[in-house]
Design a protein around this nucleic acid. Structure first.
Length: 310
DNA sequence: AAATCGTTCAACCGCACCGTC
DNA sequence: TGACGGTGCGGTTGAACGATT
């Protein structure tokens, strides 16, 4: 037996609110308050609406001192910083931004801000390229934890990694991203919820010194060599080996990467919308009179093959 | 000009939490 | 202590609108 519905669904109006309904609700609440009972409120004022709908309409639209749209850089910064720290707890994030509602922030994040900061990788490509690995390959393997990360957690890791990138050969960060790094650095890093594999040895064991998530990947790749497919991502050494002779000498970046042993996934240009891609996600490379595009993913490349294409 | 596609955002839904009885 | 009901929250939907073909 399910729970009784909060209102009579058959006799309740749904969909957009009319100006008259808005006026009725607004006038009543401004005069009398909600009376501590949203469920009873619509009946009291003669609205054929669900109490929850009234509450939502008031909180998200009719309440005084609400701001809509026009998010400032400062607000962007706060939203992103909090999202990295606590995830999609929009009500808590909204509490830090006077005049903003959780619904507004959620919509803004999902439609604009996320793309602005993470680049515009085509969603279809993310969905299409699931790892071609049998369940049993990883059944008792800690890698499963990474595969099972929620999209929110993946986004947060990606964003965090992106903002902490130590590699200077990539294009400079936007002012907003720079500002976010400052904010991240100003708070206790331990408060950031960085999800990583508990079974993975510490960074000192493998020389990977930057991203926790990458440390995990590197070890897991090493651990699973010969037993499972390992070409879903490549270490710097593997990349150098793979492209040796083709790009050697052209890529100063590899020298820098060698020093830090970063672990990257490289994607071909077909995987991206090059017209809308963020400048922090790709760079052009000229080699033997030909132009190449190389894209970097920030540690989230476990589901990709690594290769470069004209 | 029409059709199609992509984006935005208001509103809905279901669930979890919490206070009350 | 457990059932009940109100509230709050996050995920999702779908209509409206703009951009592109």
């Amino acid at each position: 037996m399910g729970r009784a519905p909060c209102c009579d669904k058959a006799n309740v109006k749904k969909g957009p609110w009319s100006p008259e309904e808005d006026a009725t609700l607004k006038a009543y609440i401004e005069k009398n308050g909600t009376g501590g009972n949203w469920i009873a409120l619509p009946q009291k004022i003669g609205l054929k609406r669900c109490g929850k709908s009234c509450r939502l309409r008031w909180l998200n639209y009719l309440r005084p001192n609400l701001k809509h749209g026009g998010f400032t850089d400062e607000e962007d910064n706060i939203i992103c910083t909090l999202y990295i720290s606590i995830g999609s707890r929009w009500s808590i994030i909204a509490a830090q931004l006077p005049g903003r509602t959780d619904n507004d922030i959620k919509n803004y994040w999902n439609t604009s801000l996320k793309k602005k900061l993470l680049g515009r990788r085509k969603q279809s490509n993310i969905n299409r390229q699931e790892p071609k690995l049998d369940d049993h390959d990883f059944k008792d393997n800690s890698f499963t934890h990474l595969q099972n990360l929620s999209s929110s957690a993946m986004e947060r890791l990606q964003l965090h990694a992106q903002l902490q990138s130590p590699y200077s050969f990539w294009p400079k960060l936007s002012p907003l991203q720079q500002k976010m790094i400052q904010t991240l650095n100003s708070i206790n890093q331990n408060q950031n919820i960085l999800i990583h594999d508990q079974n993975t040895p510490a960074a000192s064991n493998n020389g990977f010194s930057h991203f926790e998530i990458n440390q995990g990947y590197s070890d897991l790749i090493e651990k699973n060599k010969g037993t499972v497919q390992t070409d879903f991502t490549f270490s710097t050494d593997q990349l150098l080996e793979k492209f040796e002779g083709q790009i050697a000498g052209e890529f100063d970046c590899f020298k820098e990467m060698e020093g830090s042993k970063g672990n990257f996934a490289w994607w071909d240009s077909n995987e991206f919308d090059t017209n809308s891609g963020s400048s922090t996600n790709y760079m052009q490379v000229h080699h033997q009179s030909q132009e190449y595009l190389m894209y970097r993913d920030y540690g989230m490349g476990w589901d990709r093959s690594a290769y470069m294409q004209q």
